[in-house]
Simulated scan of single mutants.
Amino acid sequence: MDVELNGETRLYPIAGDPIAQVKSPGLLTGILVARGINALVVPAHVAPKDYAAFVAAMTSMPNVGGLIATVPHKQATLAFCDHPTERAVFAGSVNVMHKREDGTWQGDNTDGQGYMNGVAACGFEIEGKRALLVGVGGAGAAIAYEILARGAAYLAIHDVDAARRDATIARLEGRFPGKVGAGRADPTGYDFIGNATPVGMREGDPLPIEAEKYQSHQFVADSITKPEITPQLQIAQSKGCAIMPGIGMFNAQADLLVDVMTGRA
């Protein structure tokens, strides 16, 4: 990757708290370079209390062309997005924005597409299957929508925030009646189990799912990129399950992110 760096280089920050775990700056910069775009994706460690000021600063900088939001800023980013897609509004979060010529932001949530494209690339098709999804925060709500949009027979949702879980179920029920309900951390009886929480990112985290109950016919996915194989995925592998680590999700949506943040989507 031969990156050009001069006064005409456009910047695309990726903001998170923490940020050290993200693998995307190099990958996305590589895609930009391959497309002949003089630009860099740079990590930005931004605490939630500083996020509004950060977005305001990015808005005022003419050489910032877009912004990627990761944990925990995806839901907050929707409030700063002047032109969100219907998918993003449904998910209640935005993970990538493009700054238009008039200084306003247009954005999308590519998490659901990326997650399920990654799962499909691993050879698992969700159509007609029973699914359990743990976590419906910024990424999880988009993933839940995509699971049902791709024809899952039923989706159970578990979230430690019961109000958030129930609000997501209510929205999905309106679009996919009879195919969604509340679940538990117990994976018994499901074909597909997905983790869309950050639990497992830090050493000593509890398991987000009762992973010891996994069975070999199940497919288990995670959204965490570091560590690549989370503790719950390690258990899934030991049980003979097929898996998708979080890097599979990100690789599957990398081109989508570049399309949106450069205004080509």
Rank of each mutant, 00 (worst) to 15 (best):
V89A: 10
P62D: 04
A242L: 15
G178E: 03
D82T: 04
H158F: 15
A252C: 12
L172C: 00
I169R: 06
A57R: 09
N117D: 15
G248V: 09
I224F: 10
M58K: 04
K99C: 04
V199D: 12
L5W: 13
A254L: 04
M201R: 06
A144Y: 09
V42M: 08
A265T: 11
V71Y: 08
F250Q: 14
L256H: 13
I247A: 11
P84W: 01
P231I: 14
D205F: 07
D166S: 07
K23E: 06
E203P: 11
E86D: 13
E203V: 14
P187S: 01
L257A: 15
E127S: 15
E210N: 15
L207T: 09
H83T: 10
D108H: 08
A156M: 05
G107L: 02
V41G: 05
G65T: 02
E86M: 01
G183T: 05
Q21S: 05
F176D: 01
A141V: 05
P177G: 02
I243Y: 14
A131M: 07
V96G: 03
I37V: 14
E228I: 15
K23V: 15
P187V: 02
V22A: 00
H45P: 08
M58H: 00
P25Y: 00
I209Y: 07
R150F: 07
E228D: 15
P48M: 00
Y145K: 11
L233N: 13
A163R: 15
T104C: 10
L233H: 12
P177V: 01
G246K: 10
P227T: 13
V89F: 04
G66C: 02
Q21N: 06
V46F: 01
A265L: 14
A144C: 08
